[in-house]
Amino acid sequence: MLAKRIIPCLDIKDGQTVKGVNFLDIKNVGDPVELGALYAQQGADELVFLDITASHEKRKTLVELVQRIARHINIPFTVGGGVSELADADALLAAGCDKLSINSAVVRNPKLIDQMANGFGSQFVVVAIDAKLDCGKWTVFVNGGRIATDKELFTWAKEAESRGAGEILFTSMNHDGVKTGFACEAIAQLSESLSIPVIASGGAGSMEHFKDVFTYGKADAGLAASIFHFKEIAIPDLKKYLADQGITMRI
């Protein structure tokens, strides 16, 4: 059976991993390649590297870093942050990146999803969506959660899928960094309305939260950062716990 995936996310700023609490107040936690290799060794199923300041500072994601990651890490990885042109995507693919996460650029220019899917295949295109629940409505935000848009989570995810996205990485801004559990209800709704995999992000604070997101939340993958970086949960322990709960895990 296809296993549910555990994905540590390494937010990167100036070549170092960081984790923001509710996207602000950034703290430093280490070298991305070293940390990524360690996670891979511990049983992480995939890795996500997000250059969180890239879109704000209009800085291109570091192709060199991607190549260093690709050389050293033997599991799939996604890179995102500030990718806004086909040429960027091409350069990252050539450097050895397996998947590209695109967020703000495709909200502004949705056709970029079609172009990337046609050019590189849907499997390369992860559409990341940061959304915030306010007065019963999930509003999509861009630029690292700084700017609200007129898009709504579910309709935007559906559009992204129909344009050729291979996966949706959904981060609940209400839950991110708070460690009180994932936004399971919204994730389940997303997962049921889409035929492509959904990566749940935002809110992981305990092993039980992962169980919930894979059962109630119907997520295909669970993503977290700080609980892994700060060694609050070890990946082997988490995967063993989830397997014991009857969830298919690669162990």
């Binding site: 296809l2 296993a3 549910k4 995936r5 499997q123 492509i196 995999p197 690669r250």
Partner: peptide, 15 residues
């Protein structure tokens, strides 16, 4: 998907 939760593409680790 509706009956069994299968998605396309198959993406991830399988035996």
């Amino acid at each position: 998907r509706e009956e069994n939760g299968y998605k396309v593409p198959q993406m991830g680790w399988n035996t």
